[in-house]
């Protein structure tokens, strides 16, 4: 079976990133999942077994000075070195900021075709076929590459395949970062809402719009989100009105989400907003304006005042968890 090289992300604390299972799952649909991970010299041996459990048949630990303190360069050199070793038919990385920067640079370096922000991968004979969800999910586009290897970045949370567990072989290579690295000076942990899931890739999202009327009322969004263990999102109008910080913005500009459940509170549902959320499996909308376009995409719509319906919903959910 042909090798599919998978670039594994690690966290600030050198643990496997939450994209790992999905990336190896995607790789297993095309070929033999080989994991490459950049680690600080002397570190990372504990990751081999964990990667095997998630489906990696072979793990390449690329020891690189500066891992964790340099952006892109360690991962890029790790990927390049690993590619020379295993001659992959495809390279898979997460469509995170770091993942796509590495993948893009690698594609140029390798003269490879890049398929970015992919939501599904498959093979058709020898061809690798990637599926993109385009223009806010209005279109599904299938594409392939004309010169290999295929470099693929996978939308976070989009591929749920799980590769069968394996007992991996492993190898260590030593690489040195190139001269084009950016240096991380400091990292800051967000203090508020840190135990809420991240918006990108969240399975549930509660989002608020200008229909909430004020920043004070936006607390209802937070409360419902916390009740459901959901991430908090917002329409651009709510962000512009200052109800919530910009990182919460869902839509054409802002984050695109495809959760299992999306609850829109006081969001009218302009085209730009729908483009960022209409691929959600189930959409619930509460809005006082019966003609709001959000209802066109809602599986369950409530025409009513968010300020009365949401507190009732929260207490109804509370009653359930008590019972």
């Amino acid at each position: 079976m042909k090798n599919v090289l998978t670039l594994i992300e690690t966290t600030d604390t050198s643990e496997l990133g939450n994209t790992t299972a999905g990336l190896l799952g995607a790789a297993s649909r095309i070929g033999n999942p080989v994991a490459v991970v950049a680690v600080a010299p002397g570190h990372g041996s504990a990751l081999v077994g964990q990667l095997g459990a998630l489906g990696a048949t072979h793990v390449i630990l690329a020891e690189c000075e500066g891992t964790g303190s340099l952006l892109v360069a360690p991962e890029l050199e790790a990927l390049s070195a690993a590619a020379r070793q295993v001659d992959p038919v495809a390279v898979i990385a997460a469509n995170s900021v770091a993942g796509r920067d590495v993948a893009a640079r690698f594609a140029v370096r390798a003269g490879a075709g890049l398929l970015a922000d992919v939501v599904a991968v498959d093979t058709d004979g020898d061809a690798i076929v990637a599926t993109h969800s385009v223009l806010g999910g209005d279109y599904t586009v299938k594409a392939t590459i004309t010169s290999g290897p295929a470099v693929i970045t996978v939308r976070q949370g989009a591929i749920k395949d799980i590769a069968p567990a394996a007992t991996p072989t492993s190898a260590t290579v030593i690489v040195t970062p190139g001269s084009t690295a950016a240096t991380i000076l400091s990292t800051t942990l967000e203090t508020t809402g840190s135990n809420r899931p991240e918006l990108r890739g969240a399975t549930r999202v509660v989002a608020g719009g200008r229909g909430l009327g004020s920043a004070e009322n936006f607390i209802l969004v937070d409360e419902l989100a916390d009740k459901l263990g959901a991430a908090v999102g917002a329409s651009r109008a709510a962000v512009d009105a200052g109800y919530v910080e910009q990182g919460a913005q869902v839509g054409q500009t802002g984050v695109s989400v495809s959760p299992d459940l999306y609850i829109a509170l006081g969001i009218s549902g302009a085209i730009q907003h729908r483009a960022g959320m209409q691929t959600a499996k189930t959409i619930v909308a509460i809005n006082s304006d019966a003609s709001a376009p959000i209802f066109d995409v809602a599986d369950f719509g409530v025409v009513g005042d968010v300020l009365t319906v949401v507190p009732q919903l929260i207490s109804a959910l509370g009653a359930q968890s008590d019972s």
Partner: peptide, 27 residues
């Protein structure tokens, strides 16, 4: 390196959902 598009499909419209008007019990 180049890519080529194999197919383009318009996603089907979402089927109409259920809509209720709040009469005090919508929550």
């Amino acid at each position: 390196g180049q890519t080529s598009i194999l197919s383009t499909l318009r996603s089907p419209a979402r089927p109409a959902g259920r809509r209720i008007v709040d009469e005090g019990n919508a929550g």
